[in-house]
Measured scan of single mutants.
Amino acid sequence: EPSQADLDALLSAVRDNRLSIEQAVTLLTPSSGGGSGGGSMDAKEILTRFKDGGLDRAAAQALLAGRTPA
């Protein structure tokens, strides 16, 4: 399960175009075949909204942490 520091680094990389959204989703869902963790939004949607400015960093982190299976 990614830590808050991992999520923060991942969000920074996506925002700075050092990591594509697809690459980030793969890192967030290493063994689930890329499927959502059952959250209301999947990781790709969360990351896309964050990059487009629709979500701030704290909200994106909380959503990603919340949808990651324990």
Rank of each mutant, 00 (worst) to 15 (best):
E1Y: 15
E1D: 14
E1L: 13
E1K: 09
E1A: 11
P2N: 14
P2Q: 14
P2L: 13
P2A: 11
P2C: 13
P2S: 13
P2W: 15
S3T: 06
S3C: 14
S3V: 15
S3G: 15
S3K: 05
S3D: 09
S3R: 04
S3I: 11
Q4M: 14
Q4R: 10
Q4L: 15
Q4G: 15
Q4E: 13
A5R: 09
A5Q: 12
A5N: 14
A5T: 13
A5P: 14
A5D: 15
A5L: 15
A5I: 15
D6R: 07
D6N: 09
D6V: 12
D6G: 09
D6I: 12
D6P: 06
L7I: 10
L7H: 03
L7D: 02
L7R: 03
L7Q: 02
L7G: 01
D8V: 07
D8M: 10
D8W: 11
D8A: 06
D8L: 05
A9Q: 08
A9I: 07
A9V: 07
A9C: 14
L10I: 12
L10N: 01
L10Y: 04
L10T: 03
L10R: 00
L11M: 04
L11Y: 02
L11Q: 00
L11N: 00
L11I: 04
L11A: 00
L11R: 00
S12E: 13
S12P: 01
S12D: 15
S12Y: 04
S12W: 06
S12C: 09
A13H: 05
A13Q: 06
A13K: 05
A13W: 06
A13R: 05
A13I: 02
V14Q: 00
V14I: 11
V14N: 00
V14H: 01
V14T: 01
R15E: 15
R15I: 14
R15G: 08
R15L: 15
R15D: 04
D16K: 03
D16P: 00
D16E: 06
D16R: 03
D16N: 05
D16V: 03
D16Y: 04
D16F: 04
D16C: 04
N17T: 04
N17Q: 05
N17E: 09
N17F: 04
N17M: 04
N17G: 14
R18I: 12
R18D: 07
R18G: 04
R18K: 13
R18Q: 08
R18P: 00
R18S: 10
R18Y: 08
L19R: 01
L19F: 03
L19V: 07
L19Y: 05
L19W: 04
L19E: 01
S20M: 03
S20P: 04
S20A: 04
S20D: 05
S20N: 05
S20I: 02
S20E: 03
S20Q: 04
I21P: 03
I21D: 00
I21Y: 01
I21C: 02
I21K: 01
I21T: 02
I21R: 00
E22Y: 04
E22V: 08
E22A: 07
E22S: 07
Q23V: 07
Q23W: 06
Q23Y: 08
Q23F: 06
Q23K: 07
Q23A: 13
A24Q: 00
A24F: 03
A24V: 06
A24Y: 02
A24D: 00
A24P: 00
V25F: 07
V25K: 02
V25H: 03
V25A: 07
T26Y: 09
T26R: 10
T26W: 09
T26S: 11
T26M: 13
T26N: 12
T26F: 10
L27C: 12
L27K: 05
L27D: 02
L27P: 01
L27S: 04
L27Y: 10
L27R: 06
L27W: 05
L28A: 03
L28H: 02
L28M: 08
L28R: 01
L28E: 01
L28W: 03
L28S: 02
T29L: 09
T29V: 13
T29A: 08
T29M: 09
T29R: 07
T29N: 11
T29I: 09
P30L: 11
P30M: 06
P30C: 10
P30R: 09
P30K: 07
P30V: 12
P30D: 04
P30S: 14
S31K: 05
S31C: 14
S31M: 09
S32A: 14
S32W: 15
S32I: 12
S32H: 10
S32Y: 13
G33Q: 15
G33V: 09
G33L: 08
G33N: 12
G33M: 15
G33P: 12
G33C: 14
G33I: 10
G33F: 07
G34E: 15
G34P: 14
G34T: 12
G34R: 03
G34Y: 06
G34H: 12
G34C: 13
G34L: 15
G35W: 07
G35C: 14
G35L: 11
G35Y: 07
G35K: 02
G35H: 12
G35A: 15
S36F: 13
S36Q: 11
S36N: 09
S36R: 03
S36H: 12
S36M: 14
G37N: 13
G37M: 13
G37W: 10
G37P: 14
G37I: 14
G38C: 14
G38S: 09
G38N: 15
G38P: 13
G38T: 07
G39P: 12
G39T: 13
G39Q: 09
G39M: 13
G39W: 12
G39R: 01
G39N: 10
G39Y: 10
G39L: 12
G39S: 11
S40F: 11
S40I: 11
S40C: 10
M41Y: 08
M41S: 09
M41R: 04
M41F: 11
M41A: 07
D42Q: 07
D42P: 06
D42S: 07
D42G: 07
D42Y: 08
D42A: 08
D42T: 14
D42N: 09
D42I: 06
D42M: 08
A43Y: 14
A43L: 15
K44D: 05
K44I: 10
K44T: 07
K44Y: 13
K44E: 06
K44A: 07
E45D: 12
E45V: 05
E45I: 05
E45F: 04
E45T: 05
E45G: 06
I46F: 02
I46A: 03
I46C: 02
L47H: 00
L47I: 04
L47W: 01
L47T: 00
L47P: 00
L47S: 01
L47G: 00
L47A: 00
L47E: 01
L47R: 00
L47Q: 00
L47N: 00
T48S: 08
T48M: 07
T48D: 06
T48L: 07
T48V: 08
T48G: 06
T48C: 05
T48F: 04
T48Y: 05
R49L: 15
R49I: 11
R49Y: 04
R49H: 07
R49A: 12
R49K: 14
R49V: 04
F50S: 00
F50Q: 00
F50W: 14
F50M: 02
F50P: 00
F50R: 00
F50C: 01
F50V: 02
K51A: 05
K51S: 03
K51D: 01
K51Y: 06
K51N: 03
K51Q: 04
K51W: 04
K51C: 04
K51H: 05
D52C: 09
D52R: 05
D52T: 07
D52Q: 14
D52L: 10
D52A: 09
D52M: 09
D52V: 06
D52N: 15
D52F: 06
G53D: 02
G53T: 02
G53W: 03
G53K: 03
G54T: 15
G54N: 12
G54M: 08
G54Y: 15
G54R: 15
L55M: 09
L55I: 14
L55D: 01
L55Q: 01
L55S: 01
D56M: 04
D56F: 02
D56S: 11
D56C: 06
D56H: 04
D56W: 02
D56Q: 04
D56Y: 02
D56A: 05
R57Y: 14
R57H: 09
R57T: 07
R57K: 15
R57E: 08
A58P: 06
A58M: 13
A58C: 08
A58G: 08
A58T: 08
A58Y: 09
A58N: 10
A59S: 12
A59E: 10
A59G: 06
A59Y: 04
A59N: 07
A59K: 07
A60T: 07
A60H: 00
A60V: 08
A60S: 03
A60Y: 01
Q61E: 11
Q61R: 11
Q61P: 00
Q61T: 13
Q61A: 11
Q61L: 14
A62Y: 07
A62F: 06
A62D: 08
A62V: 10
A62R: 06
A62K: 08
A62I: 10
A62E: 09
L63S: 03
L63N: 02
L63R: 02
L63G: 04
L63E: 03
L63C: 04
L63F: 05
L63T: 02
L63M: 09
L64Q: 01
L64W: 02
L64T: 01
A65R: 10
A65I: 08
A65N: 09
G66F: 10
G66P: 06
G66E: 07
G66N: 11
G66R: 05
G66S: 06
G66V: 08
R67D: 07
R67Y: 15
R67A: 12
R67S: 06
R67N: 10
T68S: 09
T68E: 10
T68Q: 14
T68H: 15
T68P: 12
T68L: 12
T68D: 03
P69I: 11
P69N: 11
P69G: 11
P69V: 08
P69C: 06
P69Q: 12
A70R: 01
A70I: 09
A70S: 12
A70C: 10
A70W: 02
